[in-house]
Design a protein around this nucleic acid. Structure first.
Length: 417
DNA sequence: TCTGGGGTCCTAGGACCC
DNA sequence: TCTGGGGTCCTAGGACCC
């Protein structure tokens, strides 16, 4: 059997948002900073290594972070700059290879097998990539180099902060065996503690456990996947990411008693965000799912699948309301979040709108209401693109969320479609 | 003192079809 | 007089990732 080459890179910008903030404002360098929260509300989206040294981490409520690190500086995000810097890093990567799989704003896999004759062996390419990102953009980036994607990603985590780790093919076991299972893609808190109950804490211990036992413990799919990764069977190639399978939006509300008016308003806003993005991408979805998080953080979902695709704001809002109340029960019940998501997506070529689809679909262009809803949405999209997002809307924005996620952040997350 | 917002994938039961 | 086996779709819940 021919050993495959060590030519997969995983590159991961360190504490990305915080690093950009420190780059843009020299006064922040060397200081403990947190992006995306305040001491009163919100959660920390990213923090500098100086803050991490005090135990601050992503996802942590702002008040808790301030407790752990009294000198912590809360920084308002420069979200458009993050997108810009992320794109520029990808451009640098493209100078080395076109085989890039971007995972998120600050992270990508590269297959450099076709680049070695131009730039040298993979570890040299990795070093040059790091030097260029540091020299031209001023950002620290960690890189892992290995034979598989899973291994390269683990290597980049081990390399942090601002490091490079190369795993030669003959030393994979030596590298992996002592590492905690939590470093593996797909092992979160629940899986890690289930494994720990069986005394499995390291990747080496997992690799030594019979696959059938792991499958019994974690279920077939998860068990098989993790067993394979632990023994370094990872057939995944570096490739462009598949088109999205769902489009959604959600909004945390703080604990409040559900009222007909508030639920309708929030769902209307969510439906508008989702529907606008769907139409902009020429998509429509058949399945609408509503998520309700109750006051005690328990989550409920209700979904409905239509015979044909729907994408208009009004139909999404009406259906979402019905599903939401099915989950909530009665007005007065405490809720803390509402979300909607459309899945079973299909491409919706404009021409298709001229043909009748399904008689029982409220959006069938063959029905009077379907046609008028589509026309209404189209004119709203047009007005918005001419006058700005806030120009028109179905519902008044009476409910302002005091410490919600900034709009710019949402736009950042929405950009992918 | 209270937990964001965008997603993917898997499981399990039930309906339904052949 | 008694109940197979396989496949697909739908729904609800949950783990996980960035």
């Amino acid at each position: 059997m021919v050993a495959s080459a060590v030519n997969i890179l995983h590159a991961d910008l360190d504490s990305f948002y915080a690093s950009v903030e420190q780059l843009l404002d020299p006064a922040l360098r060397g200081r403990a900073i947190a992006v995306g929260a305040s001491a009163r509300g919100g959660v920390v989206l990213a923090c500098s290594y100086e803050a991490k040294a005090h135990g601050v981490s992503g996802g942590m409520p702002g008040w808790r972070a301030a407790q752990l690190c009294p000198d912590l500086l809360f920084v308002k995000g420069s979200f458009h700059r993050y997108q810009e810097f992320g794109d520029r890093v990808i451009s640098v990567m493209e100078d080395f290879t076109p085989a890039i799989q971007r995972i998120s704003i600050d992270e990508a896999f590269l297959d450099v097998s076709g680049a070695v004759h131009l730039f040298g062996p993979p570890e040299v390419i990795a070093a040059r990539l790091r030097a260029r990102v540091r020299g031209e953009l001023g950002l620290p980036i960690s890189v892992g180099v290995a034979r598989t994607k899973s291994l390269a990603k683990i290597a980049s985590q081990v390399a942090k902060p601002d490091g490079l780790v190369v795993v030669p093919a003959e030393r994979e076991r030596e590298f992996l065996d002592p590492l905690p299972v939590r470093l593996m893609w797909g092992v979160g808190p629940v899986t890690a503690s289930r494994l720990a109950e069986r005394g499995i804490r390291t990747i080496g211990q997992l690799a030594a456990t019979p696959r059938s036992a792991v499958e019994r413990l974690l279920g077939n799919a998860v068990g098989e996947k993790l067993s394979r990764l632990a023994v370094n069977e990872d057939p995944r190639r570096v490739s462009g990411s598949a088109r999205g399978r769902s489009v959604g939006a959600q909004s945390a509300l703080g604990r409040r008693a559900a009222s007909r008016e508030a639920v309708r308003e929030v769902l209307g806003q969510l439906a508008e965000r989702v529907a606008t993005r769907m139409r902009a991408g020429g998509l429509a979805g058949r399945t609408l799912t509503v998520r309700v998080r109750l006051g005690d953080m328990r989550s409920l979902t209700r979904s409905h699948t239509f015979p044909g695709p729907l994408s208009t704001t009004l139909t999404i809002t009406e259906t979402a309301e019905r599903l939401a109340w099915d989950a909530i029960g009665e007005p007065g019940t405490e809720i803390s979040l509402l979300g909607i998501s459309l899945s079973n997506l299909e491409q919706q070529p404009f021409l298709q709108l001229e043909f009748p689809l399904f008689g029982d679909n409220p959006e069938s262009p063959g029905s009077a209401s379907g046609a008028s809803r589509l026309a209404l949405d189209a004119s709203m999209d047009a007005a918005r693109s001419r006058f700005g997002k806030a120009a028109v809307g179905y519902l008044p924005a009476q409910l302002r969320h005091g410490h919600g996620t900034p709009d710019a952040f949402r736009e950042l997350a929405e950009r992918e479609l």
